[in-house]
Design a protein around this nucleic acid. Structure first.
Lengths: 244, 244
DNA sequence: TCTATAATACTTGTATACAAGTATACTTGA
DNA sequence: TCAAGTATACTTGTATACAAGTATTATAGA
């Protein structure tokens, strides 16, 4: 029987991260997965005790999460807001907005180097599938889009991406973990969509790009209700029967 | 002779702000105005001494400025990046991007209430001009656009706004302060542009909206080179001859 | 039993202390 | 004079301490 994992966020990502960042990632994961329910009030002291650190890194983490709109810093404690389906849709609105903008810029650029990088990432994703590594797959997926966005050298567009990235990353991580066990063919379809994306960039075909973007969103997008994420997550990690 | 002002950022904005926020605003203003030059290395200890506070609020402020891309947190000290003209252009790219998006949404909404609010702000701006209050004018200008963006209730679009707002605010503040002394007619033109914006919203006229948006950007946009901002700023506040 | 007031326990914001690591400068040797 | 190595002073990251304020709870009075 699989042991219950102590941390939801992949620890390999946090090798050279400070305590604050580590805790931000973990809390974000717990909030988005539903493990920490909306409305919960987090206290710095309590969190510090739970994570066995001082309040300093906790404060740092809470500031980050507040800037991502998944908690709200109030006078007495931080209120967990979480993500409703409306907000998930909004995140994808923003992605569509900036990726479309980026594509317009790419039309006027040489995209040879970019195209090579993307192909490399795609191969990494294939390997991840081969070894049923959902986390690696998700991370490469995020990297794929980050590479595209970063390629136009627009610091403020990149800033927008950096703001939504952590939450995106969590959503994709959770979605992939849920699906890798059974819905194998989903992943090959995701790969296929990314291939179309690359093709759109190479041929500078607007329509194709929009199509693949939509395909990708519809695919990766969490069709399940957010509240179900944690339940699935529990079942995956514990492999045991849960009450209820 | 006017006395040199100790703080660049309007203190009335910071009445109920903590030390961290206050310092972030002040440092941002000094960096964007050029008072603190690009390449300068800021040390937490030194800043703490300068502002006569402990390192805690300083750290908080530096984190904020780093998320705005105007400083870069490194191993040894925070490197001031500042704003080049390229980056100022990029900020306006993003504004154009989101305000256009917002307008598309407004087309499908009832904009009566919004239009009233905007008219009120416009009157406030007129009063500010009447009393030659550049700061108040700038703040109301920012509020004008924030009100539009906030009206569509899109938390992630609002998040983007909140990310670029502080820097925008500084740019507009500096620009208005420089111009209020002499270029009086500029302000009535800004008012005029905003009136067009309201009209575009009321008539739901895409073309008109784009036009007013461009007019507004071209107008408010800092035509002067950024490096000149601080020099002008110094002359304004000291009213004395500067070397060089 | 209900209300008002006071005591208490918990909250955040800021200041200080300590530890680990890095760049600089100096000293020592040739 | 130059090079190598060491000592020192400064950096950030984290932990702890303290202060001011707020919600809760308990107690006293009617």
């Amino acid at each position: 029987m699989a042991e219950s994992r102590e941390f939801l966020f992949p620890e390999k990502m946090l090798l050279k991260a400070g305590a604050g960042e580590r805790i931000a990632c973990e809390l974000r994961m717990r909030i988005i997965s539903g493990m920490i329910e909306s409305g919960t009030i987090l206290s710095e002291n309590k969190l510090a005790a739970d994570f066995a650190v001082s309040r300093s890194p906790i404060r740092e983490a809470l500031k980050v999460l507040a800037s991502e709109n998944i908690i709200r810093l109030e006078r007495m404690g931080a209120v967990v807001v979480g993500l409703t389906e409306k907000e998930i849709q909004e995140i994808y609105d923003v992605r569509l907005l900036i990726e479309t903008y980026v594509f317009e810029r790419l039309l006027k650029m040489d995209t040879n180097q970019l195209s090579k990088e993307l192909s490399k990432i795609l191969e990494m994703m294939n390997v991840a599938i081969k070894y049923r590594d959902a986390d690696e797959f998700a991370l490469q997926d995020v990297l794929f889009h980050e590479t595209i966005i970063g390629s136009i050298n627009h610091s403020y567009i990149l800033m927008i991406w950096n703001n939504i990235k952590p939450v995106m990353e969590c959503l994709i991580l959770l979605s992939m973990r849920m699906r890798i066990a059974e819905e194998y063919e989903d992943f090959t379809r995701v790969i296929k969509n990314h291939e179309i994306y690359i093709e759109a960039i190479e041929s500078k075909d607007r329509a194709l790009m929009i199509e693949s973007l939509h395909l990708n969103f519809d695919d990766v997008q969490v069709q399940e209700k957010v509240e179900d994420l944690w339940r699935s997550q529990q079942m995956l990690s514990k492999g045991a029967v849960q009450e209820k």
